[in-house]
Design a binder for these strands. Structure first.
Lengths: 343, 343
DNA sequence: TGCGTTATCCAAAGCGCTTTGAAAATGAGT
DNA sequence: ACTCATTTTCAAAGCGCTTTGGATAACGCA
């Protein structure tokens, strides 16, 4: 059932039917009702490709899944971020499109998505330091928003980010206040911008307290459970092992916990742990009392906000750049306590 | 840059340019090269909406994210499944589209996706028992594939599924062979088809061994860490607590482990645990020796296969129904051991 | 030279919608 | 009754591509 057929059934022109359905004022309210009834009855749905061709808008937002060939890793926050965004998109009549791209073709993927007219806007996830893609998107003139920021990129762009530096600064201070001096950082990959900022926060807190950073206590890799476990076990073997560990995600924190248990150490007593908690739906940080002391910021909420900001941008391409910095909560759970007395 | 402009630059007709670019034989190889060079030079990319309109195909596959209003849960396997599928899609020139729909409007979401011409095929995820959506899609005549199956639906349809029953049957047998008699099942939501089948496998193994199921040892809810923890703690308080626990996912198994640790029990010694492992990229089951004894089946691989099967279906709508049943591996890790001697 | 083939290219129709510019119908005002 | 303004409807163009049905050029061969 297409517009032509529907209009023939109704004995009206396509123009009138189209206008009736799209809420234009220049159509009699009676005919509008008639048209709407007929559309519903016959299950008419305007073809979105044709509509897109005619209007020049696709009503689709694009995301790219970087499927790196080296590390076949899907970011665990992906699902929640997307779920948050998807909800807002559908509120505004947008759909969501994904393209897969490996590291080498990622720029091409963005370009293709927009220049083919497949999407009206793009969400850029997981920016690295000096993120090249931001300039690419800027030059292309596509409306986009970055989830995160990129140190070293000086063109202006819309972004939404957690204040990673301040989160880790506060978390580290918290540990220092508890008397910890040997504080480890199990960070994400440090070419990622967020990881860099967390590291900065951590280092600043150490510096404030007159503590000098120990490279042995600073680890960086992809945020998996296995990695959290591996690095913790490794550090526990040091002559002067950490009494506290900051870790970049709940997933890796679980690995940390596993390593502590294996070593017969009690988390929150022998070793304190603070994790960053993205508030994932399938991995809540306990129910009443948090399991881990954590810096918490809902990535789902970030997805919602990113979607809204992008839709705004699409509506008003000339608006000044919008940015949004979210402060993470520091929630205290059972995984932290005063530094043990070793002497 | 559109086709018209490009053809004017080249001094050729749109027809020829289009054919040259799409590999039709009726164009001189020299001109083809000329055209391709010009297209590359000017960054010409055919508008996918226009192309879709003209061809009647959108080259997009649709997925629906069911954002249930009750439980705001994103399935943790989502990311990996999608990553697997996305890769295959892009190999075949397809994009991937998501729509969000709450429980009430989910049927409408599928209908809209296809009848608007937005997608050429649909992936149905997480089927329940007696899944209504399957009949809806069948009646609509849209090519689709189900990830999972649905007991009680007797129309034929394409699906790919893990042999959940056999997995849990084997896992339960394995525990019985180790001398366990009090075996608990911490299952997913049992209106989900996969959970039902796992339950069947579990019950069958008990039955074979002449054990009668104890309702106190059979739990069912959404597969979160908190839930695994909660149910385990609850069961450990029973007069006759379980000596072994089967659990539906690695995530809930982590909760199980946490509860065991809190109770001062040693996993694999005091209580054995078997988990179902979807082989998620961010949650590998250990590196060398698996942490958990597990029934393992890569959901990413399932995503790849689903994508391929769906693309086949779109190509050949009249082919007989295709189904694919994957057997999970039973990998033995450190979380299982002989039943403790309580007497 | 003329004619049939084949290789190469083209004009125009059509995909299903929106939107412009104009016509027809209605109503108000005198 | 007639004019003018307003409301309501319409025909047709256009969005950017593919594809049908020809046209033209090139070629081989008698």
């Amino acid at each position: 059932m297409n517009l032509k057929q529907l209009s023939e059934i109704l004995g009206l022109s396509q123009t009138t039917v189209s206008r009736a359905l799209n809420g234009y004022p220049e159509v009699n309210e009676d005919t509008r009702l008639r048209v709407q009834a007929a559309a519903a009855k016959h299950g008419y749905r305007p073809n979105s490709r044709a509509k897109g061709l005619a209007t020049g808008r696709s009503m689709v937002i694009g995301h790219v899944i970087p499927s790196s060939s080296q590390h076949e890793m899907v970011n665990p926050i992906f699902g929640d971020f997307v779920a948050g965004a998807a909800r807002k998109y559908s509120d505004h009549g947008y759909d969501m499109m994904f393209t897969n791209a490996d590291d080498t073709s990622i720029e091409e993927a963005y370009r293709s998505l927009f220049q083919r007219g497949a999407v009206d806007g793009i969400v850029l996830q997981g920016p690295k330091v000096n993120e090249h893609r931001i300039e690419v998107l800027t030059r292309m003139g596509v409306p986009f928003i970055v989830h995160g920021r990129s140190t070293g990129v000086d063109v202006p762009y819309d972004w939404i980010d957690v204040n990673n530096k301040s989160s880790f600064l506060r978390a580290t201070r918290f540990l220092i206040d508890l008397g910890h001096r040997r504080i480890a950082l199990i960070n994400g990959l440090e070419d990622m911008d967020f990881a860099q900022r967390r590291r900065d926060g951590y280092l600043e807190a150490l510096h404030e307290a007159g503590l000098s950073p120990d490279p042995e206590l600073m680890r960086s890799a992809e945020m998996t459970e296995v990695y959290g476990h591996h690095e913790t076990r490794d550090m526990l073997r040091l002559d002067d092992p950490p009494t506290a560990i900051l870790t970049a995600s709940m997933i890796s924190a679980i690995g940390v916990r596993r390593a502590l248990n294996e070593a017969g150490l009690k988390m929150g007593k022998d070793v304190s742990v603070i994790a960053h908690d993205d508030d994932l739906s399938y991995l809540k940080n306990g129910q009443d009392v948090p399991i881990f002391t954590a810096t918490r910021s809902s990535v789902r909420r970030a997805g919602e906000m990113a979607a809204e900001m992008l839709i705004e941008r699409i509506k008003s391409p000339e608006d000044p750049v919008k940015t949004r910095l979210l402060e993470a909560e520091l929630v205290v759970g059972g995984s932290t306590g005063p530094a043990p007395d070793r002497f």
